[in-house]
Design a protein around this nucleic acid. Structure first.
Length: 501
RNA sequence: GCCCCCAUAGUCUAGUGGCCUAGGACGUCACCCUUUCAAGGUGAAGAUCGCGGGUUCGAAUCCCGCUGGGGGUACCA
């Protein structure tokens, strides 16, 4: 079995080449859950060794996004820790990677390669032209003496440092996610990978591994796309004589249409966009936890602490899971409904301000009014961002006609304009005499009216709803009228009746 | 092409040899509630457990093959 014993130290090591997308958060989340469940440490490390694709504020976006969903770290760039720095470019300046590549060079396990990228590309196409699709590079320098390599380097020729892979044999490793089954890769499938680029910057394969070792990482939980390069890593650990960590490769999150993994360019999955789309971090957290992991045959809604308590790597799926926005939205609605009215009003306020319905910041009166309105929509929201469109008529004029709603909306089925105008005038009369403007009193007055008129409630109420809100779908009528107030209700009724003649 | 991984309804998933006439959720549809829309409640449709062989008294569960899907194949991560 794969019972986890001993200390647990895991990390999330993103590359700041763009905003953090949802797949990255899932990987971070599983690492975090694993650490928290076993009482270990979770470390954030920024892997900025790709100078070409580096995006200036990506690292900040990553930190902010993680914190937003509720993931914190014990050691990392901004919080420090005993194994810092936690940014690879800073570690590179310290000479950490060079020191380790020298060690391999001295031991004859790596070599300086003077083959340029252009030459490499030529070799690749030439091989393919001969009908051999798999090109595995072995530099001629792998047989040179170190002195010879250094001499050539001294002449000013740019070089990379490559790992000298064994030519035959095989490497095997276990994966926690795939149970006990062992993954076996033949060495003739591997090539002499680059460890250090010609710029002196290490490549992922090298840098992450040196850092994982130096930082005492015990378990590596990463996405499945890393499985094919794991043999390189295992071999590198052997080369250093270090003990490899335990691997667990998480299933990829597939695109909605199932065609490939989630991509930044094609899918709307930037973590920082979920806030503005009206998602609660708790909902995203819960949904993401279920993306590749499950607790039992029926429990889905769980708090962060429940998930921490219940999480186990053994219950992580090996097969990919499709991104399902419908399910996320449903879950978001569940979390919104769990919010108190005060909390909901607070969550919804920025959306109302952004829509220009209330000030930014809102006045005390606006805040109070929002708190009054929020109960009308709390069961109707699946995304907080829907609040403005559901509540705008409480803040804006509502009138029939070309610059407002279509007067035809007012007319119920089997009614004509005159009948509807009469209904609206009658409603105006009945409501006008209500002394205490409370939902219950308004309802009583209207029900009384429908009886006196021998008119069914449905068309009567429907006409009033449109007159007052400008739409046929709205919150419960009497709560709506109560919140709207006497003056606006009555004037909107008059306006509507007038439009119908 | 080559290497690796995976495979239960449209989607996510429970299931680790008999409790499965396969459980739950999203989505879909119907009904109830009801002033509309939601929420809530009830119910329905939807899976020959990818296909074919084995092993076994017995397989969704174990083995093999096939097919399909995904991932990788960079001086990117």
């Amino acid at each position: 079995m794969t019972a986890i014993t001993g200390p647990v130290r895991v990390r999330f090591a993103p590359s700041p080449t763009g905003y953090l997308h949802i797949g990255g958060v899932r990987t971070a989340l599983f690492n975090w859950l694993f650490a928290r469940h076993y009482g270990g440490q979770f470390i954030l490390r920024i892997e900025d060794t790709d100078e070409k694709r580096l995006v200036a504020d990506a690292a900040d976006d990553i930190s902010a996004s993680l914190r937003w969903v509720g993931i914190n770290w014990d050691e990392g760039p901004d919080v420090g820790g005993p194994h810092g720095p936690y940014v690879q470019s800073q570690r590179q300046e310290l000479g950490l990677y060079q020191q380790h590549s020298d060690q391999l060079l001295e031991a004859g396990l790596a070599y300086m390669s003077f083959t340029t990228e252009e030459e490499l590309a030529e070799m690749r196409t030439a091989t393919e032209a001969r009908g051999i699709k798999s090109f595995r590079f072995r530099g001629p320098e792998r047989d040179w003496s170190l002195a010879q390599q250094r001499e050539t380097a001294a002449s000013g020729k740019p070089y990379t440092i490559r790992l000298k892979m064994p030519l035959e044999g095989e490497t095997r490793f276990n994966d926690l996610v795939r149970g006990g089954s062992e993954i076996v890769v033949q060495h003739d499938q591997l090539q002499d990978i680059v460890l250090i680029k010609k710029t002196g910057m290490p490549v992922y394969h090298f840098a992450h591994l040196v850092d994982d070792h130096l930082m005492g990482i015990t378990h590596v939980l990463r996405a499945e796309e890393w499985v094919p390069s794991t043999p390189y890593h295992v071999l590198l650990y052997h080369a250093f004589g270090w003990q490899a960590p335990v691997f667990a490769h998480l299933p990829v999150i597939l695109r909605q249409d199932g065609k490939g993994k989630l991509s930044k360019r094609k899918d709307d999955v930037a973590t920082n966009r979920f806030w503005e789309r009206g998602y609660l971090p708790e909902a995203l957290f819960n949904y993401l936890a279920l993306q590749g992991w499950s607790y039992d045959d029926k429990t889905e809604i769980m708090s962060s602490s429940e998930i921490v308590e219940r999480f186990s790597i053994e219950r992580v799926q090996a097969s990919g899971a499709r991104w399902n926005p419908d399910k996320l939205r449903d879950m978001n609605g569940i979390y919104i409904r769990k919010l108190s009215m005060e909390a909901l009003a607070q969550q919804v306020q920025p959306f109302m301000s952004a829509a220009g319905l209330i000030g930014n910041p809102p006045s005390a009166a606006e805040q109070g009014y929002l708190l009054r309105l929020v109960p009308l929509v709390h069961e109707r929201l699946e995304e907080l961002s829907q609040a403005p469109e559901l509540l705008d008529f409480f803040f804006q004029d509502v009138r029939p006609g070309p610059d407002g709603y279509d007067p035809a909306l007012l007319i119920p089925k089997k009614h004509d304009a005159t009948q509807t105008a009469n209904l609206l005038r009658a409603a105006h009369g009945a409501l006008n005499i209500v002394e205490d403007w409370q939902a219950a009193n308004l309802e009583a007055a209207m029900r009384d009216l429908s009886e006196r008129l021998q008119a069914k409630p449905s068309p009567l109420f429907g006409a009033v709803r449109v007159a007052v809100s400008g739409r046929s779908v709205a919150p419960p009528l009497f709560d709506m009228l109560a919140a709207l107030g006497r003056e606006r209700t009555l004037s909107r009724l008059s306006l509507a009746a007038g439009a119908l003649g």
